[in-house]
């Protein structure tokens, strides 16, 4: 998916979080968005997912203004672990089937197999480890048949082994031409995958650079 962000600014009350932010991505690009807490990483994700209201002609997906899209087609979202409602029992199977508009079919089964979810398919979400949970969230996002995937801090609470498994999954998705936007504290996680790095700072300034970068 082709993504263009053109002079996007966003402020909460008086605090400017994003200031004239511009960049563009094409299919198969991998963007790591890094910066300290409160620099607007999640705000950018929310703008791209239409969770926050922005002016017209600031974000274009496949050359269509995001505000003109009634529904976000082909966009997958992997939330922060803390955003999920945990206390009520729900199985992996229920979570995935409810996110999938059709009945269980070959595409659905393929994703379950690809992400190695067969063993935990009937388990309660509350009993999963951080890594297993992230795999479930990625599977749920992939069920939307995405051309763009937005991941918000997917490595938080995940052990090294599962981080490496996630790296492999994202690498495969990138090679399939899915545009990936990764919000992270941990730029090292995807240093070989990042085609671009967007570094955000406290004052709303940004730098958009090729490859993997870190911030001071």
């Amino acid at each position: 998916m082709r993504v263009i962000v053109d002079k996007l600014s966003f402020a909460y009350d008086d605090k400017i979080v994003l200031n004239n932010l511009s960049f563009s991505l094409v299919s198969g690009d991998f963007l790591s968005v890094i910066g300290r807490n409160g620099t607007g990483k999640s705000t950018l994700a929310k703008c791209m997912l239409k969770l926050l209201k922005i002016p017209d002609k600031k974000i274009f997906l496949d050359d269509v203004d995001i505000n003109k899209l009634k529904k976000l087609f082909n966009i997958g979202y992997v939330p922060q672990k803390s955003e999920f409602n945990y206390e009520f029992p729900i199985s992996v199977k229920e979570l995935l089937l409810c996110a999938y508009p059709k009945r269980k079919d070959a595409f659905f089964t393929q994703i379950i197999n690809d992400l190695d979810l067969n063993v935990i398919y009937n388990d309660n979400i509350n009993n999963l480890s951080g890594g297993q949970l992230q795999r479930v969230f990625i599977a749920r996002a992939l069920l939307c048949n995405p051309k763009m995937l937005v991941l918000d801090e997917p490595t938080v609470g995940v052990d090294q082994e599962n981080i490496e498994a996630m790296y492999k999954i994202l690498s495969k998705l990138k090679s399939e031409g899915i545009t990936i936007i990764l919000i992270t504290h941990d730029p090292v996680f995807c240093k070989d995958l990042s085609t671009y790095t967007l570094i955000l700072d406290d004052l709303g300034f940004f730098s958009f650079e090729k490859g993997c970068k870190t911030y001071d």
Partner: peptide
């Protein structure tokens, strides 16, 4: 399906 999705993850419900 929509009710269950909304209950467990409102953000995902909006995005989908």
């Amino acid at each position: 399906k929509k009710i269950v999705t909304l209950c467990f993850d409102e953000t995902f419900a909006i995005v989908s």
